[in-house]
């Protein structure tokens, strides 16, 4: 058999099973979502019909949608910089020969291994009014009786704190791995030059960690749009949609109200957001970050 033909046949056959599943559960649904977003939700005997941009028009006028967008942005702004900064701090500490280094590393990383549902269950108890741990502590100072999760102003922040607690340790390990790659000769040179520790960190270590920061940042952004387990478990989007994130709202629309047409339109928004971020990362960050 001709060499090239055989390479073609073998290549395609090896790829076939994975390609078929990818087509069925990634490419087809992506296309179908876009198509369905232009159609109405079938109701009873009325089948789905083409309605053009109606779903999107509804969306523009939908206060809960906008609330979810704003919430999601606050959530991203609240979780991403904090968890990255904490992760970096943890990594710098764990990278030194501090007393109890093994314990420190374990303490920082363990929350990462818990399912979000478990994290939510544990933290729910902290936030419970009167009986919960935070209120118990506040009572010592004569305060307390505050319903952290039941108040619009604080509910989203409760979710943010929980998320930072779970995520920071995960990002830490990537920083730690990167820190250990930095040749010790750089630190020696800097110390001979009499550079301060902060100067060395700012001018040498931090720039060298840029690829890691980028990697962690991408993951953090994706996670902020992809993970809503804790919202589902703790607040169900409440009170008064104060903790509704985009994916949560999508779930609620499609699987609680069974409005699949509108759900498809919401999915498209999420896909566009994730896609825009991927493109931005490709065109913008790739140039700003120098890889070693």
């Amino acid at each position: 058999m001709n060499q090239r033909l055989s390479a073609n046949i073998h290549g395609w056959l090896l790829l076939l099973p994975a390609a078929a599943l990818l087509a069925l559960f990634t490419h087809y649904p992506t296309a179908a979502t876009v198509w369905q977003s232009f159609r109405s939700t079938p109701k009873g005997s009325r089948p789905s019909v083409f309605i053009g941009l109606d779903n999107y028009a509804t969306m523009l006028d939908d206060p809960i949608f906008w609330k979810s967008v704003v919430n999601n942005l606050i959530y991203a702004a609240g979780t991403i910089p904090t968890s990255i900064a904490l992760a970096l701090l943890m990594a710098v500490w764990v990278n030194q020969n501090l007393a109890g280094r093994g314990f420190l590393r374990m303490a920082y990383f363990t929350p990462t291994m818990l399912p979000m549902i478990a994290v939510a269950n544990i933290w729910l108890f902290f936030y419970t009014p009167d009986y919960g741990l935070i209120d118990q502590v506040l009572k010592l100072f004569g305060r307390g009786g505050y319903n952290w999760l039941g108040t619009k102003d604080t509910a989203l922040w409760c979710i943010i704190v929980m998320t930072v607690w779970k995520e920071a340790g995960f990002f830490m390990i990537f920083y730690l791995a990167a820190l250990q790659q930095i040749p010790p000769s750089l630190a020696e040179a800097a110390s001979l030059e009499g550079a301060s520790r902060w100067y060395f960190f700012r001018r040498v270590v931090f720039p060298l960690l840029m690829p890691t920061t980028l990697f962690v940042l991408i993951n953090a952004v994706i996670n902020s749009f992809r993970l809503v387990d804790h919202v589902l478990a703790i607040t169900r989007g409440g009170p008064d949609n104060a903790t509704s994130l985009l994916l949560f709202y999508l779930w609620e629309t499609a699987f609680k109200f069974w409005d699949t047409g509108y759900g498809a339109a919401l999915t498209v928004v999420l896909l566009v957001l994730l896609g825009a971020f991927a493109l931005g990362q490709y065109f913008y960050f790739d140039r700003r970050v120098h890889y070693r």
Partner: peptide, 18 residues
């Protein structure tokens, strides 16, 4: 590689129909 961006976690509506 499209799947790295368009994750199954987001395509819940259509995947459910499938």
């Amino acid at each position: 590689l499209v799947q790295l961006m368009v994750m199954p976690d987001v395509l819940i509506v259509e995947n459910y129909q499938t």
